[in-house]
C-alpha cells in the first residue's frame, strides 16, 4: 500500500512553507485551526494569522478586504460553513469583485464521519461551481494537494479548494505537476472511462485494476479542477471508450457528475452513470462505513462499470 496522508495535513504543511516564501500570504480561520491545519501556519507566522472566531461571514469579508490592499488571504473552515454559512459573502465580497481570496475548506463530504449529516457537506462543489469567476479544485491526495495549493497561491483570483478529513492513499508521484483546469489520465483504457475527483480517484484506480482481471480495459481520468472543467480530456475519453462513469464524494446533483453530463450531452453523448451521494444528506458513522453505505467504493465502481458496458 502506498503512503497515506490527509489532504488537510498536506495543506497545513504547504501553507506554512508558502508563508516563508510570500510575505503577502495571510491566513484566516474560524476557530478550527487545529482541524483545518492552518494552525501550522499560525505557529510560524502569528502576525499574519487571524483567528476570526466562530463568525464565518465576517471572516470571508475580512479576507476580501485584505485582498483589496494587496494581501493573498487563505480562508479555512469546514466546507459546510465556508460554502453554507458564508455563501453570500463568497459571492458578493469575493467572486463578484474577483478578489484574490483562496477559500480552502476541509472536512468536505461524508468522510467527516461521526459528526453526522449536519457537518457533512455534499453540495459545496455544486454551489461553488455555480458562482461566476470561481475556480473549484478537489485534490485526490496529499501530493496533488501540495501542488494545487502552490498553484492556487500563484493564481490571481478567487478559488475554492475542497479537502478531506481522513488519510487517503497517495496516488500521484512526488514530481506530479498540477495545472489548474487540466485533467490527468492515470490509467489507460479503451472499454470505458472512470472520470473522478477527490478521494474517489483512488477507488477508480482500484476498480480499473479489478476490471482488468476480468478482461475489461477501464481508463481513469482524474479531474482535479472541477471548474474550469477540462472538457477536452472528457470528450476524448467519451469518443475513445464510449462509456463514462463519474464518481465523487458529493451529491450527484450539481457536482462533477453533473458537469461531465453537461459536456457529454452537448458534445459527445455516450452512456453515462454518476456515482455519488444520491441526493441525500449524510449520517453519523465511521468514514469507512459511510463510504460503503453510500456506495463510494471500488466495488460499486466495478459493478457500475459492468452495468454500463452492458448498455454500450
Amino acid at each position: 500500500m502506498s503512503s497515506m496522508i490527509a489532504t488537510r495535513d498536506a495543506y497545513g504543511e504547504t501553507l506554512a512553507e508558502l508563508g516563508g516564501e510570500d510575505p503577502r500570504i495571510v491566513v484566516l480561520d474560524a476557530d478550527l485551526s487545529g482541524s483545518t491545519k492552518t494552525g501550522v501556519f499560525a505557529k510560524k507566522f502569528p502576525e499574519r494569522f487571524f483567528n476570526m472566531g466562530i463568525a464565518e461571514a465576517n471572516m470571508v469579508g475580512t479576507a476580501a478586504g485584505l485582498a483589496a490592499v494587496g494581501k493573498v488571504p487563505f480562508v479555512s473552515t469546514f466546507a459546510i460553513f465556508a460554502v453554507g454559512r458564508a455563501w453570500e459573502q463568497v459571492r458578493q465580497s469575493v467572486a463578484y469583485p474577483k478578489a484574490n481570496v483562496k477559500i480552502v475548506a476541509t472536512h468536505g463530504g461524508v468522510t467527516v464521519g461521526e459528526d453526522g449529516g449536519s457537518h457533512q457537506s455534499v453540495e459545496d462543489v455544486a454551489i461553488m461551481r455555480a458562482v461566476p469567476n470561481m475556480t473549484v479544485i478537489v485534490p485526490a491526495d496529499g501530493v496533488e494537494t501540495k501542488a494545487a495549493i502552490r498553484a492556487v497561491a500563484a493564481y490571481k483570483g478567487p478559488v475554492y479548494v475542497r479537502l478531506g478529513r481522513n488519510k487517503v492513499p497517495t496516488i500521484f508521484p512526488a514530481d506530479y505537476r498540477f495545472e489548474i483546469g487540466k485533467g490527468t489520465e492515470l490509467v489507460a483504457g479503451t472499454d470505458l472511462t472512470f472520470v473522478t475527483t477527490g478521494l474517489m480517484t483512488a477507488q477508480a484506480v482500484a476498480a480499473a485494476e479489478q476490471l482488468k482481471k476480468e478482461g475489461v480495459s477501464a481508463r481513469v481520468v482524474h479531474i482535479g479542477t472541477v471548474k474550469p472543467l477540462d472538457q477536452e480530456i472528457i470528450v476524448k475519453a467519451a469518443r475513445e471508450t464510449g462509456a463514462i462513469v463519474t464518481a465523487e464524494e458529493h451529491s450527484i446533483v450539481g457536482g462533477l457528475g453533473s458537469a461531465v453530463a453537461e459536456v457529454l450531452a452537448e458534445q459527445c453523448p455516450v452512456p453515462l452513470k454518476r456515482v455519488g451521494v444520491n441526493d441525500r444528506f449524510g449520517t453519523s458513522g465511521k468514514a469507512e462505513e459511510l463510504l460503503k453505505y453510500f456506495g463510494l467504493t471500488a466495488e460499486n465502481l466495478v459493478e457500475t462499470g459492468r452495468e454500463l458496458l452492458a448498455r454500450k
Binding site: V60, G65, L66, P97
Partner: peptide
C-alpha cells in the same frame, strides 16, 4: 475599492483593509 450593496458586508471588508 470593493463591491458593496449587499448590506452588512462592507464593514468586514473595511476591517480586512485596516488589518492589511
Amino acid at each position: 475599492e470593493v463591491c458593496t450593496g449587499s448590506l452588512g458586508q462592507g464593514l468586514s471588508m473595511a476591517v480586512g483593509m485596516a488589518l492589511g
